[in-house]
Design a protein around this nucleic acid. Sequence first.
RNA 1: GGGGAAUUAGCUCAGUUGGCUAGAGCGUUUGGCUGGCAGCCAAGAGGUCAUCGGUUCGAGCCCGAUAUUCUCCA
Length: 872
Amino acid sequence: MNSIRIRQTFLNFFESRQHFIDKSAPMVVKNDPTLMFTNAGMNQFKDIFLDNLPAKNLRVANSQKCLRVSGKHNDLDEVGHDTYHHTMFEMLGNWSFGDYFKKEAIQWAWELLTEVYGIDKESLYVTVFGGDKLDNLEPDEEAREFWKQYVPEERILYGSKKDNFWEMGETGPCGPCSEIHVDIRDAEEKLKTPGRDLVNMDHPLVIEIWNLVFIQFNRLSDQSLHPLKAKHVDTGMGFERLCMVLQGKQSNYDTDVFQPYIKRLCELTGKTYGKDTDTDIAMRVISDHVRAVAFAIADGELPSNNKAGYVIRRILRRAVRYGYTFLNFREPFVFELVPVMVSGMGDYFPELPAQKDLIMRVINEEEATFLKTLSTGIQKFESYITTLGDKKTVDGKFAFELFDTYGFPVDLTQLMAREKGKDVDMKGFEEGMKVQKERSRAAATVDTQDWIELSKGSSDTVFLGYETLVAEVKPLKYRKVTSKGKTMYQLVLDKTPFYAESGGQIGDRGILEAEGIKLHILDTQKENNLSIHVLDKVPEKWPAVLTAKVDEQKRRLTENNHSATHLLHSALRKVLGDHVQQKGSLVDEKRLRFDFSHFAKLTREEIRKIEELVNQRIRDNIQQKEHREMSMEEAVEMGAIALFGEKYGDKVRVISFDQEYSTELCGGTHVHATGQIGLFRIVSEGAIAAGIRRIEAITGKLAEEYINEKADTLDHARELLKNPKDVIKGIEQLLQENDKLRKQIQQLQKAQAGNMIEDLKQGIRNVNGMNFLAMKLEADTQTAKDLAFEMKKQVSDLFLVLGHHAEGKPGITIMISENLVQKKQLHAGNIIRELAREIQGGGGGQPHFATAGGKNPDGLDKALARAEGYLK
RNA sequence: GGGGAAUUAGCUCAGUUGGCUAGAGCGUUUGGCUGGCAGCCAAGAGGUCAUCGGUUCGAGCCCGAUAUUCUCCA
């Protein structure tokens, strides 16, 4: 069975059991401070488990793209070395939200695996939770009883809390789980060691393929467990592993999911897979990593230097590094695997074919940058090695510096050191790493306390802010959050006029008022789907009802910019073409920022055209049309464009300004008619990554001020030039003239210096075979320097001491011909230190030339007189 | 969010305890030589040493702030 059919079979099976087949949520998570990437199929249903939102469907199944790069399940450093761990993988899952529970979950799992997929029953083992004293939990006999209907008892094992009690995080929903393991060793091996002894022992061929989680508790921050009202089922089956089992392979990488990448890599390198351990590992690493990186980019997460973008960068770099070291790649190559991926997964994940070019460009450029980083690192390393001499050990501190500052992987440092017959002090390296980690951790600790409930009600806060900015609201719950000594409070209301930051539009500010109480809302944010109002303090006693008032001015200015963003988006598509896709957006009261895919710098004409188009629409004063509860199908029919990497519900909101011109899916707030925006002006355009450009623009009064300022500058310039017809030409003439004059001055100065040189020459006396001159003149240091160098050219055996002063500041310059320096063991720097005392200053220089400055011009004569003393 | 670093000619980079008239290679312009392929020789142009402030007689170099970029950790 090929992988495409395996996936489809899973979905069909649950669809026929009344499950709603959901799409995969984006792999990159937004609006959740605890999570950067979807790391399990359940992530997108978190709010349902937390009871923040009601479930729309009680039964759901899907295949979810996931990314795991750290934590107990996975460590990036391990991927590729074994044959069954991945960064990016698909998780097949079925869910019950307060609907069916253990009985059906177990029955169906068994049925699907054995009857539909036809896995040999004899090779399956199941585990159930064996209880835990600390948490005062009994073994999960309930699950065991159900399993006994299908599986002989000797293949049902009790598991520890570590393996068989699932928790979402430090706090939150949790419960016992039941895993299905499969033993795919050959018959001979099975005879030698029974499979049951190898379950959960990290054996590569006795592996967990499906985890059925029975969520029935909520854990509070004091570690206590409380039963949930509604019990849920959450299951996850690793797609790649399932393919391995069904295709009779012993490595995930031997399935049709990964083989095409490996084949392509063999083509690119001329190497063969399966002959050399290092080559094999490298090929596995690269095949795995390209999938993670490509999906992230498709979801709009570009490689960058922090947060999620940094994780992506690291994954890609790891792939490049393995290719560099073990496959001898010196040019970008990972991007070449993207077409392989598109043809393998493009049908189920349409974001891949739609953005193939962009994904390839971004990866290619990122690879090129890293290869450059590697080459500067190698340079640093080489020059360090030459300072080592006979020492056998590369300093751990240096290895860490190379890694920390220049991004040079430490294992590469080790490799290169070995080639030079040296080793790396890894202890020192680890030490540096430890210090760095501790520092970061200390800076990032956040203490989040439990919610304190004020009154009952759904946390699915009703948003009133489309219609009103003032409302009577009920506080539902709040909690204290401390980070870096700063304490903030997060508050949830039953309904609110405050817009919570999302879709690029920043959160509202404002106040909450009641009898004798005035609270400042500093920001409004979204955590998953929860609207959180951020306060700096809370009252001792909460009133049942408060008046919420949004800061109107800030909101209106923000709306200007948000609506302008929509107009800009369509203008870009009109002027540049339909390949323009939104890749990011930020809207606040001051400006708007819009990132989009496009492959060339915008010309001045294009920018003007875009501005004109937007301003035209503003003058048309188009009424805003809002469709609040539209189905996705209707919205698409209207011409609305859905963004990749965004998660939409089944009902969407559509905002249009002239349906033909601008129609977008959007939850943000907007002007009623475009005329309100007043004026639109692009202030900057540039690249932020390969194939992605960023425009920043301003609107309304700020745009007006911006233009006025420019006009004023021009007027001013015009006035300064005495109002010429053509200002540019006037300036050009001025510059030309300036250039000409400067050259003339240079020539004059040269001539003058020539004269002065003649004068100076007149004063030369021959003392002890030296052409000695000590003279005072009115000149600055620079002129004196010039004279000194000129004299050196013209006069041999020179010993020149110039005392000079300009604007009250005295200085001394000494020039001695090289041959005198040699012959008489003179040192201008040392001499000048002595002489400078006379003018209350200091100085120094090389043996043949030195300068000094000072404070007392009256001392110059004395200094010059003393100079003669050095003529021995 | 917290550390480390970088910013010098169009490009890639040197620049040693503060004492340079700030250099190199590539590129570029001009001239000469040369039958070729990134040819050779010579001369020249090209710098606000990121920005602002400070220390100092003197700052590309030391200190502080800002900006941008790189990098590691979370």
